[in-house]
């Protein structure tokens, strides 16, 4: 059942990424909701789920992008795995912890992409850091924070999971 839910989520995620997100980009940068989803799954469900979902999301997203397949899979898989490891080190996931974690995860993932792109000169690297890496890290953190607030504060999924009434 969980596999079906994850597969549907990945399909929806890829569709939204390719069609809707280009219209909500800020300064030409759109949030990486795949990374946000993988980070949340890793943090709350453990390393194995984070890793497997991360690898699948990275693969699915690379099919509809010019991004290198290996870099995309390894980046998303690593984020899921590390989020799972981090999830065992923190007692409670607060919005601050989540937002900070997302900034770090997004930055690491972007640095991996820059490394795989092999830019020719220093100027290009700084341009990428200034115009893509930094805005995307902020954007991912904001989107992740909003998702967290929406899911756990508004929908009360914890209570749902415990079988209580809203």
């Amino acid at each position: 059942m969980k596999i079906v839910v994850y597969a549907c989520a990945v399909a929806a995620l890829v569709a939204v990424h390719t069609t809707v997100l280009p219209y909500v980009s800020v300064w030409g940068v759109k949030p990486d909701i795949g990374l946000v989803a993988v980070c949340l799954i890793g943090l709350l469900s453990g390393e194995l789920e984070g890793l497997v979902v991360g690898l699948f999301v990275g693969w699915a997203m690379s099919l509809f992008s010019a991004t290198d397949l290996a870099a995309s899979m390894v980046a998303k898989g690593s984020v899921g795995f590390l989020a799972g490891l981090a999830g065992r080190q923190v007692a409670q996931v607060t919005p601050l912890v989540l937002v900070s974690g997302l900034v770090v995860a997004s930055t690491l993932s972007s640095l991996m992409t820059i490394w795989s792109l092999k830019p020719n000169d220093q100027q290009d690297i700084w341009w990428m850091i200034r115009t893509i890496l930094m805005p995307q890290a902020c954007f991912d953190a904001v989107v992740g924070g909003l998702c967290y607030w929406l899911i756990w504060s508004r929908l009360n999924l914890d209570r749902l999971a415990e079988g209580r009434e809203f």
């Binding site: 943090l43 453990g46 390393e47 898989g77 795995f81 607060t94 756990w152």
Partner: peptide
């Protein structure tokens, strides 16, 4: 606030680490 994940068993953790290293090594 939400409790973080503590439920991963030792086996699952080892499996995750194995898969992760295999993928890295493979690529």
């Amino acid at each position: 606030m939400r409790m973080a994940n503590f439920r991963s068993s030792y086996g699952a953790r080892r499996l995750a680490l194995g898969v992760f290293l295999s993928v890295l090594l493979g690529f």
